[in-house]
Write a protein that binds this DNA or RNA. Sequence first.
DNA 1: TTTTTTTACGCAATCGTTCCCGTTAATTAG
DNA 2: CTAATTAACGGGAACGATTGCGTAAAAAAA
Lengths: 344, 344
Amino acid sequence: MKFEAVTIKDIAIALGLSTSTVSRALRDSYEISPATKKIVLEYAEQINYRPNPIALSLKEKRSHSIGVIVCEIANSFFSQAINGIESIAYSKGYNVIISQSHESYEREVIDLNYLASRSIDGLLISVSAETENFSHIQSLHDRGFPIVFFDRAVESIDTHKVIVDNNKGAFDATEHLIKSGYQRIANLAGSPHLSITKDRIKGYRNAIETNGLHYEEAYTQYCLHGGMVYEEVEKALDAMMALSNKPDAIVASADKLTTNCIRYFKSKNIRVPEDVALIGFSNLDIADLLSPSLSVVRQPAFAMGQIATELLLKMIESKRAVSEFENRVLPLEIMVRESSTPLK
Amino acid sequence: MKFEAVTIKDIAIALGLSTSTVSRALRDSYEISPATKKIVLEYAEQINYRPNPIALSLKEKRSHSIGVIVCEIANSFFSQAINGIESIAYSKGYNVIISQSHESYEREVIDLNYLASRSIDGLLISVSAETENFSHIQSLHDRGFPIVFFDRAVESIDTHKVIVDNNKGAFDATEHLIKSGYQRIANLAGSPHLSITKDRIKGYRNAIETNGLHYEEAYTQYCLHGGMVYEEVEKALDAMMALSNKPDAIVASADKLTTNCIRYFKSKNIRVPEDVALIGFSNLDIADLLSPSLSVVRQPAFAMGQIATELLLKMIESKRAVSEFENRVLPLEIMVRESSTPLK
DNA sequence: TTTTTTTACGCAATCGTTCCCGTTAATTAG
DNA sequence: CTAATTAACGGGAACGATTGCGTAAAAAAA
């Protein structure tokens, strides 16, 4: 079934004008007399004329839409970030096309190629946890395609990046646990391929050592799919809990890691914070409704989306190739609640 | 900055052929000799040629993308539904463009006009809670634009609809509370403009009366923005709780209503289920992690998204106008947990 | 060998818009 | 009153791809 819309040609024929005149009248060109403009404008309004964005795109070589690749939209952080992205994009007349990688490298490559075949003007991407090889992104970037990373950036690719101070966030979270009296603090980490994972581990380790505690290798366990796969989290926590000196507190380094950690504790009847305290990176908006309420490291997701989009649009709309790239590092917020209650 | 891609013309010039020959060679037309095909295909591969989807759209009057309007993607039900939508759309070569109404009528109208101006081939919509006047959707539908409703449908517009058996869901939830010994069951309802709200109230009331309880007007309180605005939920619950015979159980009729209900109880130190039992419509994937774990009426969100998309694509790809519309009603699932523990 | 058929390609229109050039008629300048 | 200017509009190419039609050369049939 087809949806026929009215074109400039229809107006031209109806009014006995040429398409060029109609086009100019609609764009309020000085070459058209006020009288003609009035006639055209009124008729266009009457028959509800809308310019065909596809024809415009073809002519201007711009689609006025941007692509977004995230792992999951059913994830508080990303859905909030997308809200930020949309708020800026729509206000500037851009469409947003969202793709999910579901943390799969293969899907990410497919999504990227799909979007990049010239239906989008630029790309916002937070790479999949599985991704180790970034050549698909690199080659696009090399060909001058505007790309902005947010949250999960690729170190080796030089373009705008909007990230958070993961190092400090993990440091603060860990130090908070230490100051609350916990001594054996473990780190439930995400994918080892992601720079955010490395930064968070760095902050975690630094806090441990700065505060005179012993850094224990086995206290850091990775989950390749960033908590998406429960079994991975289960395995990681089993490994920690099997240690002779098992942890008395955990820093969980991602949204899904945090919730699956809670799920694990619940299934094993491990009490929080009595048996193990917990603080997690999370943007869950009901973290305060859990019992115990959840201490979190919260990312400014909405702002990240906004800033990333502003940078991307600036890059898209700049006349010449951009070579100076910004690296925005936003602060994290720690919200202390019951799950990390100080030891008596 | 501009991203120049290679066109069929580039190939034609480089190979000393005409664009038609190249086009036919790429589409494997019988009119082209195997030798020429080989040359073209290899060269195209070498310079990484991708057909320009915008040019194709202009020619075929189809953009191969569908629009989705939901109130919020940061809502478990909708993000799961979108996953279902994407899974079908991508597998059939369609793009998905998502817009959020944030439960605002005004935004919905803007989003609709934006999407409809021929950049999309069809629309999946779950109307905003605020929307009372549906003429913007109606007029689009009248002009033959393919539209499929999911979850929140508009009764007066005759097109495909994918909904759930809200009546039965509310009936079952309410009856479950009754069978668990609760007697004064209230209904925290969503927007009075939505048909799902009416159906859920119908089911609720039917369960009350079928089971020989007294139906009390004041036990049903509406929230115009479906729980998005905490103050509305607070006001509704305040009204219920101020009653002399205040409720001993609540059926919350939407995702955000349910979570904000929990937030209210927590802030007022009302214990669940001891003071008030609770069962809510919710697709929250951590409902089991709350304490008490939350009894829910769960919607098959993913499947709804899939079915709605299949119906939409069928409508888009059908040669002639569709006049027989389907009304798919999916079953709801009740998951009983601690928040509606039977009274002793 | 001549005629017919087939093969393999090119030309040009089309989709909806914009925009660079004309071109006519009216206006102004000289 | 003639020449130069300008106002107001139309013609047509372009964006990238597809496709109906025309046509040269080669192959097959007569």
